[in-house]
Design a protein around this nucleic acid. Structure first.
Length: 321
DNA sequence: AATTCTGACAACCGCGGTGGA
DNA sequence: CTCCACCGCGGTTGTCAGAAT
């Protein structure tokens, strides 16, 4: 333990070394820490801990300050925009939480890490795949992120009726009914045409451009990363307009429309329609295991997975076989 | 109503990297 | 070069509130 002093009496040191507090911080401790930092600034955490009269390690003080007490720390639910940003930045940098946190002002690396572990990894677990696997990353890129974009757009333009995650294929769905729904969906090719305002600009204080030409090729899930900003396609609600992809309006990147008959997936990928044609058995077996898990997705920030995700994931698995 | 389970978040620990003395 | 303090990260545990039984 690194509790050697640099600024304070070392006489107190040995005494405190043997009596360091651990566990949750009290209000009094918080007050002491805030007060001390207000007067002396932060840094030199070990000596700070002693001088402030805190029976804590410097490390603990630092963590408490950075993750909780800092005046600019932002609390509360991770917004959709922040979720998108986290996914995007994580796809570029991996578990570089601190680096990611720098682009989400007010959010701490610990908070982002917790979000990733409790939400994202949970989904990976539910999909029975590794969070670092190509399948999961592809699912994230082609389904989750676009869906987030779409929901952000839907929130921004609540009157846009074609938007929104109408992804609940029905809580009463069986594999058969889900598949039927899927067939019907595919029959809608060319029907959808929407017009969306694009969330573009500051997300949580970070400058983020979400342009509608997100493709697997320019996605950053690959180890090599390109320059920010990233481009994200709103291809998302596969249930309702799976084949509609946005077309960038050259004069205004923040303004685009869906155009029928085009498909937003790379050639290396088979569409879920393709999967459907030969993957029903696979899906049926899988669904028996997962019961309604994928069909009950509501419209909460966490429920971004649905039946299409499973189609997609298993299609990816098939591709790799 | 009581108990158990679960999810989310806070906090800790160990390790390795970095920079200054 | 070595030592030391700090920092960042990954992994893990502890705590607590709400849901489920």
């Amino acid at each position: 333990m690194d509790v050697k002093g640099r600024g304070c009496s070392s006489a107190i040191q040995s005494e405190e070394d043997t009596d360091l507090r651990r566990g949750p911080w009290t209000v009094e401790e918080d007050f002491k820490l805030i007060n001390y930092i207000a007067n002396h600034g932060e840094g030199r955490w070990n000596s700070l801990a002693r001088c402030a009269g805190l029976r804590r390690t410097g490390k603990s003080c630092r963590l408490r300050w950075l993750n909780y007490l800092r005046p600019d720390v932002r609390r509360g639910n991770i917004t959709l925009e922040e979720q998108l940003l986290i996914l995007e930045l994580h796809s570029r940098w991996g578990n570089r939480w601190s680096k990611i946190a720098q682009h989400l002002p007010g959010r701490t690396d610990n908070e982002i890490k917790n979000y990733w572990r409790t939400r994202v990894q949970k989904h990976a677990k539910q999909l029975k795949c590794d969070v670092n696997s190509k399948q999961f990353k592809d699912t994230m890129r082609y389904l989750w992120m676009p869906r987030l974009v779409e929901r952000i757009q839907a929130a921004a333009t609540p009157t846009t009726t074609t938007c929104g995650p109408t992804t609940t294929t029905g809580t009463t769905s069986t594999a058969a009914s889900a598949n039927q729904h899927y067939v019907n969906t595919n029959n809608n090719i060319g029907k959808g045409k929407g017009h969306m305002a694009l969330p573009h600009g500051v997300i949580g204080g970070a400058q983020v451009n979400i342009t509608p030409s997100y493709t697997p090729e320019n996605s950053s899930t690959a180890a090599s990363s390109e320059s920010f900003p990233r481009q994200v396609s709103p291809v998302s609600d596969l249930t309702d307009y799976y084949h509609n992809i946005p077309v960038v309006n050259n004069t205004n990147p923040a303004d685009y429309t869906f155009q029928a008959g085009q498909f937003g997936y790379s050639d290396s990928l088979i569409s879920p329609c393709g999967y459907y044609s030969h993957g029903v058995d696979h899906f049926s077996a899988m669904e028996q295991n997962n019961n309604q898990m994928w069909l009950d997705c509501g419209d909460t920030s966490d429920n971004l997975w649905n039946i299409e995700d499973v189609f997609f994931l298993h299609q990816q698995l098939n591709n790799n076989m």
